[in-house]
Design a protein around this nucleic acid. Structure first.
Ligand SMILES: [Mn+2]
Ligand SMILES: [Mn+2]
Ligand SMILES: [Zn+2]
Ligand SMILES: [Zn+2]
Lengths: 147, 147
DNA sequence: CTATAATTGAAAACGATTTTCATTATCAGA
DNA sequence: TCTGATAATGAAAATCGTTTTCAATTATAG
């Protein structure tokens, strides 16, 4: 069970190693996503980003998120209302557990679906290449506050 | 393992029972989705629909899909490029297996995640309410044609 | 320090979806 | 079967999130 928090230092050096320049808007955006415990959409990143960098443009948020996704540092999260929110990417084979109330994201590992996948492959004739698994519920705090 | 095919008759009476009128555009749209073995986006439904109903409007496709979703007859399918395609809804506890090549959708049941869910709930402190599982691969036909 | 090219933000463009609105069609009731 | 109320339709306009364009700014190699 790992928190979504991540080191923004690492991400910045990854950007630099790939030939991207280190700019103030990028530092701010990377810091926001790395420090967030829930998925954020571009507008949310923009609003948070303007606190630290008043001139920030929404375009830059879109462009930076796209680069971070290409580098495998962030991932899109699929939710009931769409898939426009970003979270740090999984480390290895992890899946996400999301709080339906506050959005808090927690990563977990150790799922073993091999026997299910084998059975479904056999019965369907498909060659199974990937599995998407996502859990939804209430975090401890929200469960208490709801009742 | 069940095919996605469904009876459009049932859907039409469901619409009627909920006070909706049975119109030609609705009959056509319902028939297309119920007969499809893969998820279709609004524009695809529109293009297919115009063959049977030349005056059909794209707006009507959007409106009808929304109603079918509200009635629980169709569901949105999440894919790498977004979640704008519709497929018949699952019958009870089923999940979807999609072909990465041709889009063919197959429903499967019988996944048992209880021990995983219990472990993750215990370790995270969450109360888990739903799980979202989707498999991706190559159907028998596409596997053969790829090599 | 300088030159070059990447990056930026404002504005315009874009494309998917939604809203508005006048016309048409369904269907309950006469 | 006919009729009236009103639900549903499609064209056009509006909206909204996202992308493109472009001139100005800035990071970085040398
Ligand atoms: Mn897994
Ligand atoms: Mn299941
Ligand atoms: Zn919560
Ligand atoms: Zn296929």
């Amino acid at each position: 069970m790992s928190t979504p928090f991540s080191s923004s230092k690492d991400w910045l050096s990854r950007l630099a190693n790939h030939g991207y320049r280190l700019t103030e808007p990028r530092r701010v955006i990377v810091e926001i996503i790395a420090a967030s415990d829930r998925a954020l959409n571009p507008l949310e990143v923009f609003d948070l980003g303007r606190d630290a960098c008043p001139g920030l443009g929404l375009v830059t948020v879109y462009r930076t998120l796209e680069k971070l996704e290409d580098l495998g540092l962030v991932q899109r999260v699929h939710q009931a209302d769409g898939c426009h929110a970003y979270l740090r990417a999984a480390n290895g084979h992890e899946h996400i557990l999301l709080c339906n109330q506050c959005g808090q994201a927690v990563f977990f590992a150790g799922d073993d679906l091999t026997s299910l996948l084998e059975r479904v492959a056999r019965q369907s004739g498909f060659e199974i290449q990937e599995h998407w698994l996502q859990l939804h519920g209430l975090c401890a705090r929200c469960r208490d506050s709801v009742r």
